[in-house]
Design a binder for these strands. Structure first.
Lengths: 362, 362
DNA sequence: AATTAGCACTCAGAGAACGAGAGTGCTAGT
DNA sequence: ACTAGCACTCTCGTTCTCTGAGTGCTAATT
């Protein structure tokens, strides 16, 4: 069933007003802000019909109307104008994004923080789990008791571990270990590292001291954590300034849910983002009980096969969907662009420039 | 002025009761739980005197008494019995601590979470800034456009960076770079890496393509972040279950303060932990305005020269100081022990065992 | 037929009034 | 030195009332 143009306008007006005030919206208010030249009585009739359609709700008989989840859904799908960010906003995003791109491990944190401070909602930033393999091992001999294992993964991240031995060992062993690992442990996923394979490697190296086991264990650990995906939640305290969370119990419920970020690791596979790279989950559309009264907006970023993930915010169903989606879309696009350019990854030029900067500072 | 034994007992009783109920404590309650065989009237008189001494406070005339910060201070300094942890508790701590000790970078996070879940207060975990130097460089040639820089720091942590070039370069350059960096950039702190030194290194290597700059910049970055110290706050949502933070504004104030963990980076130098490795800051003793109504308990861990830091919790002044200090003390001691044993660092034996485990699983 | 003005009705929320109960300080008695 | 008793204080929860925003409906208007 298609809504009349007028009903659409009224629904939009109700949502717009409710988003800023968090108070039920009356017919009079709609008449004023809605830019329709109608009396409040006419609007009352229309609003009654919208309520009958389940797009609006009435907290109690003599109160104004509040958008229902279904109403928000319609708004998000059809009515919402795709907002453009102001120059100041894009500027701010760009600046924050380019600044800290260097440390990739800190990136998720920073992006989350950015999203949160931009939208004033708690944000979540997560990387999708992707099966990784080691594409190359190097083992650095430090002293007879110490060596460093370096593993270069196929997603171009580098991991290392310092190994200290309670006995000494000759340097030749190192090169044997490196050779064996490079031939037998590269290009395979974590589950392929079987005890059989480890045994074979031990024989191949003539290792009687468990060195192969140590390196294999490090490899397994590296691959699992690399695959694991990670979730960070930032800015949870923003919730407390929202009227819907003035009830400390409500706030507590959601915040404890958010603080266990394991919950969100399960998110990416389940959610299909469809054509657009953004998805809005309104109130009861969320599977988690704790989120049934809140909305989640997530945008996907996609930096080649190496790195994918989501960036999103959590807020009350009364949310500035237009603004939030615009901001998240922009951040995600930036992230894809920045990380995706595999040829000039985390900043060769930038690093060089940074070197120069330092040169001038001193 | 020395308090009579009886007054001490009464003060202790008031604090003990207030800690669990968060309600002003009346003379009758003290008479019951205080184990003194006195009538409430006598206790009333004593409590009046304690109030006059500023150790107790009265929210209003016809209410019971509440400990003042001064009262807590006295309690913490003299009255509090040093609590022993139960076997279950130490077990739990030990288990959680040994489990995840492997990934040193995740450690702070996990320890913070542990402290928080144990005490039910928000926790903060931070590492002290310590000047670091590189003790050894290695550069791994991957392909003509790619190499990996590995830096072993004097605190035995290893850092690396994958560098991708927009042009190709011969392998010989790599060894020259490694040699120069190992001779000229080891054992020096970040501020010694001057443009002059970089220029000299560039000439020494015959580097015209800025490779030295890239590596130098990486070194600087590594050293500064290694020095920088880090702070993580976990479990902030615990605040919301406390009666003193039922007022959302109060909760919001403290939580936003906590969520900006920069604040705590400044903490360690300022605070002198005295003889004992634990410190309690009660209410107004805190410098930060936002903490004037809360207490902070911090314990220091010290793992040799390589790693020092603090682990602490934030809570209302009404806090189970005895239990919290005991737990933090235990965690900090465990941390010192675990990290401090530089000879068997992040788990050689454990890793080996882990390898075996995996062997059996498959 | 669509819109509007008018009106009676509903109901949440703010404020006043009130009583109960916990706790106090003081006095007089043990 | 301690305690029993008592008058007094003050918060907190309850009840009650009143106000006002907002509604739905009807009758009038365009």
């Amino acid at each position: 069933m298609e809504l009349s143009e007028r009903k659409k306008k009224i629904l939009t007006a109700v949502i717009d007003a409710y988003v800023v005030t968090a108070e039920p919206v009356g017919s009079k208010t709609v008449a004023e802000v809605g830019k329709l030249d109608l009396s409040s009585a006419t609007i009352r009739n229309e609003m009654a019909e919208l309520t009958a359609l389940g797009l609006l709700e009435q907290p109690h008989t003599s109160a104004g109307r509040v958008p229902s989840p279904k109403g928000y859904r319609l708004y998000v799908n059809e009515l919402m104008v795709r907002q453009r960010l102001s120059l100041e906003e894009t500027d701010e995003i760009n600046k924050s994004m380019y600044r800290k791109i260097q440390q990739l491990d800190k990136l998720m944190n920073d992006i989350g923080r950015l999203a949160s401070s931009l939208t004033h909602y708690p944000s979540l930033a997560l990387t999708a789990p992707i099966a990784a393999t080691v594409s190359r091992f190097d083992i650095i001999y430090v002293d007879p008791n110490t060596f460093i294992v370096v593993a270069l993964l196929d997603n171009r991240s580098v991991h290392n571990k310092l190994v200290t031995l309670p006995f000494s060992m000759e340097a030749a062993m190192i090169s044997r270990l490196a050779a064996v690992f490079n031939s037998d442990f590269t290009g395979i996923t974590e589950d392929k590292i079987t005890p059989a394979r480890i045994d074979a490697a031990e024989r191949a190296c003539g290792d009687t001291m468990g060195l192969v086991s140590v390196i294999a264990a490090f490899t397994i650990e590296t691959l699992t954590t690399a695959c694991h995906g990670e979730a960070v939640v930032s800015g949870a305290s923003h919730l407390l300034s929202l009227p819907e969370f003035r009830d400390p119990d409500k706030a507590h419920e959601l915040m404890s849910y958010l603080s266990d970020n394991e919950h969100f690791l399960k998110l990416p596979p389940g959610t299909d983002l469809g054509d657009d790279d953004i998805q809005v989950l309104i109130g009861p559309e969320n599977v988690a009980e704790e989120l049934k009264n809140s909305s989640v907006v997530i945008a996907r970023y996609n930096a080649g096969d190496n790195m994918r993930g989501l960036i999103g915010v959590v807020g009350p169903t009364r949310m500035d969907y237009s603004g939030v989606t615009a901001k998240l879309r922009y951040i995600a696009a930036g992230l894809s662009r920045l990380l995706g350019s595999a040829e000039a990854p985390p900043g060769f030029e930038k690093l060089q420039i940074k070197g120069d900067d330092i040169g001038e500072q001193h």
